[in-house]
Design a protein around this nucleic acid. Structure first.
Lengths: 334, 334
DNA sequence: TTGTATGCGTTATCAC
DNA sequence: GTGATAACGCATACAA
C-alpha cells in the first residue's frame, strides 16, 4: 500500500506538506497543493484511517451493538442509525448476536479505539450489568434497554402505554377472551408489553375470567406456532395480541391455515408497525413506532454526547407510540 | 482512557510485559501474567484497536458497502454476512447509500486502514468503474454486481434463470397477458430479471400480443402504485411478475384494494422469497434465493481471498435459485 | 523471563 | 510556506 511517505518522495516535498495538502490546510501554496494532490491521485494514495485516528483521537465511527440482525425491526433501526450517522459524517461499526453479558463485554473490547461512541441495544434484562462496566468512561447511548434514567443516556419506547392502548382497543370492541403472544421471557420490550396487557385486562375485570398467555420469540414462525396452539385451547380466544408484528403476521397465517376468518372470527393485533404491516391481508392493527426515527434519535443523542463530553448530563427519553387500527381487528363475534 | 503504559506503571513492569501478558505470549511467568491481568482488569484496560492494527497490519474488520439498507432483502444479506464474519472472528464496518460512483470511492477511502477486505454490493450498472479503481490493490468481493468474471471475485444470483422459470410457470398456467413490474432502470438485478421475462415471453410467442412493463423501485409502495396503474390498463393483465417480493406484496395490497381476487382473477409472482413471503395471504409464489447464505458465501470467499493474497485467483460464482409455487398464482381465468 | 528501543502512518508543534 | 521531528498506543526484535 502506498503511504504518505511515497507521495512525499515522489512529489519532492516533506510528509508534512503532503498531509497539509490533503487535509486542506491553509498553509500551502496553491501550486504545491495541486502538485501534491496530483501525485497522490496518480499513486492512488489514500490516508490510513487507523494511523490518522491514533493521533487525531477520533475515528468518525460509531459502534452499534445489537442482539440480533433478524427481521424488519432491526433493519429499520439500523437504517435510521445509518442515516443519522451519515448526516454527521460518521460510519457504523456493527456487531450483533449479543444476548449475553459476556458477549457484550467482548464486543465492547473489540471496539475500543475503533469508535468514538457506542450505541447499545440490548433488551435482555440480564445484560444490564455488562453495560454498566464501560458506560462511564465512554459515550454510550442505550436503545430500548432497561436503565436508571440518570446514570445513562437512553431512548426507550413507551411499551407500556402502547400495549395498554391496543388491549383497551380490543376490549372496547367487546372482546373478553384475549390471548397474548409475548416475546422471550427476559426481554425488556416483551416484559413491558405484557405488563400493559395484564394491567388492562385486570382493570377490565376479565383477568380472572380469561387470561391466556403464550410465549414466543418475536419471529414469524413462533407466532405461527403460538396461534396454532391457541386454536386448540378449550375456550378459543376471540382476539390475539402479539408482542410484535412479526409474530402477529405468523399468527395470521396460522389462523388462515385453521380456516378462521380475521377479523370476523378472531381479531389480531401486533406491535411496532413494521413497513410490511399495512400490506397484510387483512392489514394489521398494531401500535405504530417510528422505528427508524428511534434509531436516528438515539444516534443524534450519541453524537451530541460525544461533542459535549464530559459536562454531559444523562437523561432518558421516552418515545411515544400510537394505536393504528386496521382491518385485522373488529367487534367480537356474538 | 487507560493505556498500556498505565497498566505497566501500576503493575511495576514494562509495557512489553503487559503486551505479552495480554496477548497470551508464552514468554511470561504465570505469576506475572496473573498480576498484570489483575491490574489490567482493575484499571479497566482495553487495548486500543487502531494502534494495534497499525503494527499488526490487520484490523479484524471487513467493510461492507451497500446501496441501501431498506427492507428484508438487505437485512437478510447483512445477517448472513455478519454470521460468517463472526465465525471468522471479524467485525463489520457498514456503509450504505452508495448508488453513485463518487460515493463508492468516498466510502472506500474512508475505510482504508480500517478494514482488511471489502464486500461491495452495488447493483447499479453505472458504478462499475468506481469499483475497478481499488479492486486490484485490495481484497474485494463483489456481491450481485455486474463484473468480468476473471478480473474480480464475485457472487451473483442466477437472475436470468430464476425469472425465466417463474414466467414459464405463469405461461404454463395459461396466462397470456403477463405484466412485469421491474426495478430501477440501471439496476443489474432488475435488468437481468426483465431480460428473463422478455426472453420467455418472446419464446412463447405472446410478446407481440401483450407485453406490458412498468417500472418500480423495489419498494412495497412502488409495487402498490404499479399494480394500481395496471388495473387501469385497457386490457388488464391476468398475471403480474414483480422483480422482487416487496413490490409483489405492494401489488397484492393494491389488487385487494381494487377488489380483485388473487389468484382467481389475477396471479402475482415475486422474486427473492424473503421470509415474509410465505406468510402473505395468499402466500406468495416467488423465486427462492437463500439470501443470508448469499451474504455468508460472499463473506467466506472474501476471508479466503484475504488469507491467500496475492496468489489468489479470481472467479465468479453463480448462486442458483428455485421456483416456489404458492397460493398467489393459479390458472388464468377463462 | 523481562526490559529497551524501534517503527507502524499519520498529524501537530515547532523551527526556519 | 515548508521541513524536521515528536507523539499517538501498541507489538516485537533484540539485548540483557
Amino acid at each position: 500500500m502506498v503511504t504518505i511517505k511515497d507521495v512525499a518522495r515522489e512529489a519532492g516535498v516533506s510528509v508534512a506538506t503532503v498531509s497539509r495538502a490533503c487535509n486542506g490546510s491553509a498553509a500551502v501554496t496553491d501550486d504545491t497543493r495541486r502538485h501534491v494532490l496530483d501525485i497522490a491521485a496518480r499513486l492512488g494514495y489514500t490516508p490510513h484511517g487507523a494511523a490518522r485516528s491514533l493521533i487525531t483521537n477520533r475515528t468518525s465511527t460509531i459502534g452499534v451493538l445489537l442482539p440480533d440482525l433478524y427481521g424488519e425491526f432491526f433493519s429499520e433501526v439500523i437504517r435510521g442509525v445509518d442515516q443519522a450517522a451519515q448526516r454527521g459524517g460518521y460510519h457504523l461499526l456493527v456487531s450483533s448476536s449479543h444476548d449475553e453479558s459476556r458477549e457484550i463485554v467482548a464486543a465492547f473490547r473489540a471496539m475500543r479505539g475503533r469508535v468514538d461512541g457506542l450505541l447499545v441495544m440490548s433488551p435482555d434484562l440480564d445484560a444490564r450489568a455488562a453495560v454498566h462496566e464501560f458506560t462511564d468512561r465512554f459515550p454510550v447511548v442505550l436503545l430500548n434497554c432497561p436503565a436508571e434514567a440518570d446514570r445513562y443516556d437512553s431512548i426507550v419506547i413507551n411499551n407500556l402505554d402502547g400495549a395498554r392502548a391496543i388491549v383497551q382497543h380490543l376490549i372496547e370492541l367487546g372482546h373478553r377472551r384475549i390471548a397474548m403472544i409475548s416475546g422471550r421471557e427476559r426481554n425488556y420490550d416483551s416484559v413491558e408489553r405484557r405488563r400493559g396487557f395484564r394491567e388492562v385486562v385486570c382493570e377490565a375485570g376479565i383477568a380472572g375470567e380469561y387470561a391466556l398467555e403464550i410465549t414466543g420469540d418475536f419471529s414469524e414462525a413462533s407466532g405461527f406456532r403460538a396461534a396454532a396452539t391457541l386454536l386448540e385451547a378449550p375456550r378459543r380466544p376471540t382476539a390475539i395480541f402479539a408482542a410484535n408484528d412479526s409474530m402477529a403476521i405468523g399468527a395470521l397465517s396460522a389462523l388462515r391455515a385453521g380456516s378462521l376468518r380475521v377479523p370476523e372470527d378472531i381479531s389480531v393485533a401486533g406491535f411496532d408497525d413494521i413497513p410490511m404491516a399495512q400490506y397484510m391481508n387483512p392489514p394489521l392493527t398494531t401500535v405504530h413506532v417510528d422505528i427508524s426515527a428511534l434509531g436516528a434519535l438515539a444516534t443524534e443523542r450519541l453524537l451530541s454526547h460525544m461533542r459535549e463530553v464530559p459536562e454531559h448530563v444523562h437523561r432518558q427519553e421516552v418515545v411515544s407510540c400510537t394505536l393504528v387500527v386496521r382491518g385485522s381487528s373488529a367487534s367480537a363475534p356474538a
